[in-house]
Design a protein around this nucleic acid. Sequence first.
DNA 1: CTTGACCTTGCCCCAGGGGCAGGGTTCGAC
DNA 2: GTCGAACCCTGCCCCTGGGGCAAGGTCAAG
Lengths: 239, 239
Amino acid sequence: MITIGQLADYAGVTIKAIRHYHERGLLPEPDRDSSGYRRYTAKDAVDLVKIRTLAHAGVPLARIKDLLDADPDTLTAAIAEIDHDLQDRIAQLRRTRDQLAQLHGGDRLFVSPEVADYLDELRELGASERQIHLERDGWILMQTASPEDACLWIAEKRQLMTDPEFRALYLEHDTAYDWSPDDPRLPALADRTRDWFSHHDSLTEVRPVHNPALARLAAQSQPGASSPAWDRLAQLMNG
Amino acid sequence: MITIGQLADYAGVTIKAIRHYHERGLLPEPDRDSSGYRRYTAKDAVDLVKIRTLAHAGVPLARIKDLLDADPDTLTAAIAEIDHDLQDRIAQLRRTRDQLAQLHGGDRLFVSPEVADYLDELRELGASERQIHLERDGWILMQTASPEDACLWIAEKRQLMTDPEFRALYLEHDTAYDWSPDDPRLPALADRTRDWFSHHDSLTEVRPVHNPALARLAAQSQPGASSPAWDRLAQLMNG
DNA sequence: CTTGACCTTGCCCCAGGGGCAGGGTTCGAC
DNA sequence: GTCGAACCCTGCCCCTGGGGCAAGGTCAAG
């Protein structure tokens, strides 16, 4: 006949937990000795280890209570199910570990693999970090608003990027961010851009996502992400 | 500018959780649109995914809050620590899985490996399930009350069990459980038992754990685990 | 006879949300 | 133009699985 503390040590739980299980009706209240102390038997120890094992497996206490006096078949099925669940949770934790590792690194955590690859391409191309960041935020927003469309658009955009002329225009737009709105190169850039699209928009339906549109969307998401030169550029192209 | 529902879908959390993070100061409250709806930016999406990843890793929300604006070195150290913790928890879950499997199987969960082996030997010997159960409960109690003594005693008991005469006596005691207290075989059994101990107790210090003592201890733990024949047997041997 | 380690009950506290009430908004279909 | 579905808002109480602390009673050893 052991005390609550000894029982707790044996089963590797706290005294508090045992009293909690009494309250929930999981473990029957044992008889008391003359001083009112609870006195436990070996059966309690066995039951408690069962309870502890199931509780550690994440089984809700209410369900443990039912399981304790279920017939063997039910118990077997339940244990199989709990084990399955445990495997799932282990897999989930492993995935969380992977994500945790990426948390520090790149953007792969926030955008689809395709977009992440695209961002890498931009980096290789020599785009500014500001631009890449802008693009990333734009794609996050697009994926959120409409994942299917974002998927189509990113494919088209990467296709576009295989064109050397488009790449050149893209990079020049990037550089133009810091220009003065009076810069004489802006009208020329606007013309070349309009020109390029007029020759290509029959081939693709890409216009809704061409760079300025993307920039505007991203600008909405990050107030102040546009620039005077870009605003002027938009004027010139739409006017 | 996306709504709370879209953001929640993107990050894989509930709307409720996002509002909870606002309350805890983890994620800043965004601006509202004209109808009072919260409107989120790409930055919020990025932050929320970080929060979600850390939260799934079991990091307390208060700590996540600190981590979000910690310097990179602190963050790196923290992530390493969190990852360690995750590995621990994966290992713990695996151990729980093993225990869960044993929960269904034998008694190895509740007693030391030595005692478990001993119980297996009893089973091979042909002891009754009732007897094995009684022994098991007795050892659980002993291990709880005094693990070191239990360790010594189980070693001595297993040593004793190598003696064929002792094994025979043991099994006869087991069988005697169901006898009538008037059974004529009882006095003879009592004599043979006393005889055996008088020839062997000089060799070992085993008397405190000989079978009747164990039976009595187990009987205390399980009211009604003794029998009229055993009570009579105890009388005959002590008298 | 004290001291420290036990035990008792009772109460409130925590994280991380879930659920529901009771209301306003938006958007597409008819 | 109006109706319903699907959103959104705040506010409140609820849950699990205990932890912590208070204010006392008990026990065993020195």
